[in-house]
Design a binder for these strands. Sequence first.
DNA 1: ATAAACCTGACTAAAATAGTCAAGTATATA
DNA 2: TATATACTTGACTATTTTAGTCAGGTTTAT
Lengths: 141, 141
Amino acid sequence: MKLTSKGRYAVMALVDLARFNNINPVSLRDISLRQGISLDYLEQIFSKLRKKEIVQSVRGIQGGYVLNKKANEIKLTNIFDAVDEKVKTVQCKKESKKGCNGKSTKCLTHNLWDELENHINNFFEQKSLEDLIKDNRERRI
Amino acid sequence: MKLTSKGRYAVMALVDLARFNNINPVSLRDISLRQGISLDYLEQIFSKLRKKEIVQSVRGIQGGYVLNKKANEIKLTNIFDAVDEKVKTVQCKKESKKGCNGKSTKCLTHNLWDELENHINNFFEQKSLEDLIKDNRERRI
DNA sequence: ATAAACCTGACTAAAATAGTCAAGTATATA
DNA sequence: TATATACTTGACTATTTTAGTCAGGTTTAT
């Protein structure tokens, strides 16, 4: 069970961006350098973030990206959702009426994984970008 | 972010095993048939569970596996640990003193992933095999 | 004796991941 | 208006992980 780097990078990049957001658009090149993430990869990630209206792009010289919402309105859920980082515990969710194992009932542990998904998603729904920034300020990293 | 089927199967198989545990050893063949899990794969999984002393094996005809502890003493953590299902959020944990990104400081979101790991692990530490069995009895699956 | 069941290690196909690469388009500024 | 900066898009690929399979054992109740 692990987090993909696409999800991690998306959050890292947005925290970075949010810190400089007030003044000017932030270029991916700068984020790339500061955070040590490949520029090409960042572009893929921001393309998705833009489509989900989490950031806005500013083209041309001095361009870059800007947050499209307030930092406290952007939750981790939104970010992960944008880059297709999902919490998957069981396969059998959407496939017809069948349960897991190809049988007609739910598997013995179905409810468990449901609980787990909820548990994790709650965490993601509560944390906002603002929380992360505050957290960093306090720890002075 | 997803659970591997090795982890899922391990838990499913143990719940199945625990339900029949009182009377006789339970053969992997039976579990395989009831849960729809490949016998060969189950053998790999139980080999690990045995090494971590979660189950005991009984060889020969009428053999099988038996729980090695009480169901309320076996937590999800123990099971996942046995089959190498770990919660991994960040790479940079054990590598020297360096932080993430190859820089000397922690990455902006390091603490976040730490929190997440704890959040998930708490869930796993609280749930025992007994809880799962009770849950199934109540729901009559 | 033999069949049921555990035991072990090597192997592999398929999927997912983590990017790279190439070829653009838009625009602020000199 | 030339041009460098920065966004935009889609295709491609190497590596790793996953989810098993396969082949050969060993043990022991009957």
